[in-house]
């Protein structure tokens, strides 16, 4: 496995390659498809995926539509189970952990967040405390949140700047406010790993920058491991420590943004040419769409 990673990342991972302790996730030989094994013709959504996620880093998963990004994230969140292969979470296999044990370590924010019922923002954020509830023999299921739960929820709300919304109904929020509420709910889980599916998809520029810098800060200050699935290559380039590029269910390139975001790799993954120049602030690659799209004959 380590040879594969080294081969894929050529040097980046060599520093920490085999020390399992520093890896939040170790993904080995992952195969996954929707449906069941009874289906005659298996169409793998993910085939033979290897990579690792280091603790405390921000990892971006990018790739064209249908390349298996979201499926991969669901596997990491234990929402779906792979048919083959193994995912280790901080050294212990995800299949051995219960759903609830996983939930105490990993928080997941899905892309689709439409809400039907008028829970208040504070109630929604407090739901993140569910995996930490205390179990008592006489628990009727009410499980009132204690002071610790409220503290964690309040801290998450401060982080996402939604304190002033706390008694508003989630059904009345704007898309950006709802997204921040859902991320706050995930932070209230006090996770070590945060998985986000297109966290900035419905957000305006200001909120995109805000959410990304919050994630950056959480990662730097508290060693929160963040995995982001995103369509936005620039966002992945500017805010992620490393990037996994998927293509047709396989890892096509892994490494730092400056390595992965090259004209050649993007051409291989997306099948079209883009312009890449250094970002004026960070010097990291900046991807720009050309004026005329000329699909290459691959």
């Amino acid at each position: 496995m380590s040879t594969r990673i080294d081969q894929a990342t050529s040097g980046d991972a060599a520093v920490t390659s085999v020390r399992g302790g520093t890896h939040a996730y170790d993904v080995r030989g992952l195969h996954f498809c929707y449906g069941t094994a009874r289906t005659q013709e298996l169409r793998w959504v993910l085939g033979d995926v290897h990579f690792h996620v280091e603790a405390g880093e921000i990892l971006g998963i990018v790739g064209p539509n249908g390349s298996g990004k979201t499926s991969l994230l669901k596997l990491l969140a234990k929402i779906a189970a792979p048919q083959q292969g193994d995912i280790a979470l901080f050294g212990s296999s995800l299949t051995r952990l219960s759903q609830e044990e996983t939930a105490r370590t990993v928080a997941f924010v899905p892309q689709e967040n439409a809400q039907m019922f008028p829970f208040t923002v504070a109630e929604t954020v407090l739901m993140g405390r569910f995996p930490h509830r205390r179990r008592t023999r006489w628990n009727v299921g009410f499980g009132w949140e204690d002071r610790e739960d409220c503290m964690a929820a309040a801290a998450a709300m401060v982080t996402m700047d939604i304190v002033h919304l706390s008694s508003r109904a989630v059904t009345d929020l704007s898309g950006g406010e709802r997204q921040r509420t859902m991320i706050a709910r995930a932070l209230a889980q006090t996770p070590r790993v945060l998985l986000l599916d297109e966290p900035t998809a419905f957000l305006d520029l200001q909120h995109q920058i805000e959410i990304c810098s919050v994630l950056r800060r959480l990662s730097d200050e508290q060693r929160l491991t963040v995995v982001i699935v995103s369509h936005d290559l620039n966002l992945a380039s500017q805010y992620c420590d490393r990037v996994v590029m998927l293509k047709e269910g396989r890892v096509c390139s892994v490494g730092t943004p400056s390595k992965v975001m090259s004209v050649e790799i993007l051409r291989e993954a997306y099948g079209c040419d883009v312009l890449i120049d250094p970002h004026p602030e960070s010097g990291l690659p900046r991807i720009t769409l050309p004026r005329q799209c000329s699909p290459l004959n691959r």
């Binding site: 669901k74 969140a77 234990k78 929402i79 219960s98 759903q99 609830e100 044990e101 996983t102 939930a103 105490r104 990993v106 928080a107 997941f108 899905p110 689709e112 967040n113 809400q115 039907m116 019922f117 829970f119 109630e123 929604t124 739901m127 993140g128 569910f130 995996p131 509830r133 009727v140 299921g141 009410f142 499980g143 859902m182 709910r185 889980q189 998985l195």
Partner: peptide
């Protein structure tokens, strides 16, 4: 009545509910 908290979380959506540790 024993399922009230689970109902709260199921109302968030099935994927969120799973990620919060509910079978």
């Amino acid at each position: 009545f024993k399922q009230v908290r689970v109902l709260n979380i199921l109302a968030l959506g099935e994927e969120s509910a799973r990620s919060l540790g509910i079978d």
